[in-house]
């Protein structure tokens, strides 16, 4: 530690609205991301997170403005790079609470190679993707989660690509907590995000967060009759069963009877990255007051 002063990151008692900064969101009326912001505030409040010891990191895009509305520390970074910025924070100061809030283009297109490497290492942070299946800030292009046929400005004739099954991706990447939420139910979304943040390890919440301006198909009205809570008797420790749910998570796009699964698909406990780093520091007798002369003696030989 060189400069930072760390206070005990103990539980604090703040109301959800006390996690908001003075800056008002600039999203379109009816945007799902308002509900996600409220859900995150609810989760932080319920978990007693100290805003002075929490950082919310984002990339670029409509949803990535979120840290600016928050009174925690925040970093509105670069398109696609929120995850490695957050990884740098968490690995160098594991005592901090770190969450990443980004959109589906940021997560799965430009920043697609960062998720597997944070997930497989089980870095103890929460990734919240606000999934609206569209690039909003650049005004309506298809994203990796856009359904087939959805028109965008670069494919006015309709999306010719198949969407990524993000839940299946995260499960196979090795995330130790994978859930899906719907912005149309902010209370439940807050509870799921709250659970994700208390999970020890890499947690992922895919929030279906409709864009009322550019995605006229995947709307609140579309999702409401289709969302379905994952049954209470689902074994969340069973990876294959979780993949089974993920496998059918996009069926609704082709099949009118298809349902959108909401809730926790999978959770398991594995050693987190920081524990392995700590063990190495112990093994190498890591100290904050090194004996420089002893270190220099190591370069005398050759």
């Amino acid at each position: 530690m060189t400069t930072a002063v760390t206070t005990a990151a103990g539980a604090v008692k703040l109301k959800p609205k006390e996690y908001r900064s003075a800056i008002e969101p600039t999203w379109c009326p009816g945007c799902g991301d308002y509900a996600v912001t409220a859900a995150i505030c609810n989760a932080l409040s319920a978990n007693g997170v100290d805003p002075d010891n929490a950082v919310i990191v984002s990339g670029i895009g409509c949803s990535s403005r979120l840290p600016l509305w928050m009174r925690t520390f925040g970093f509105h970074s670069a398109h696609g790079r929120a995850i490695p910025v957050a990884v740098g924070m968490k690995v160098s100061r594991p005592e901090l609470t770190i969450a990443v809030t980004i959109g589906d283009g940021d997560a799965f297109a430009i920043g697609g190679n960062h998720i597997p490497n944070a997930a497989r290492r089980n870095i103890d942070m929460t990734l919240i993707v606000m999934d609206n299946g569209v690039y909003g800030l650049t005004k309506n292009q298809n994203s990796p989660t856009s359904r087939e046929g959805l028109p965008g400005s670069l494919m006015p004739f309709g999306n010719i690509d198949a969407p990524i099954n993000v839940l299946a991706f995260l499960l196979t990447y090795g995330a130790t907590f994978v859930a899906q939420a719907f912005a149309g139910n902010p209370k439940q979304t807050g509870e799921i995000i709250g659970r994700a943040m208390t999970h020890k390890g890499f947690s992922y919440v895919n929030v279906l967060s409709p864009c009322p301006t550019f995605n006229k198909v995947d709307t609140f009205e579309y999702y409401r009759p289709r969302v379905q809570d994952i049954p209470a008797d689902h074994d969340t420790g069973d990876l294959l069963k979780a993949i089974g749910i993920a496998e059918h998570a996009l069926d609704h796009q082709k099949n009118p009877e298809g349902k959108v699964p909401i809730g926790l698909l999978y959770q398991t406990q594995k050693p987190v990255f920081a524990e392995k780093v700590d063990a190495l520091k112990t093994k190498y007798k890591g100290t904050d007051t090194p004996d420089w002369e002893k270190i220099l003696d190591g370069y005398k030989g050759h």
Partner: peptide, 27 residues
């Protein structure tokens, strides 16, 4: 490691500079 630090192998150079910026941000 002897001074309580860590070498973190990233997935590419962009992640390396991003992580360095993130760590520096937290002090």
């Amino acid at each position: 490691l002897k001074v309580n630090g860590f070498v973190y192998q990233t997935e590419d150079e962009i992640a390396a500079i991003a992580a360095a910026i993130g760590a520096s941000y937290v002090g």
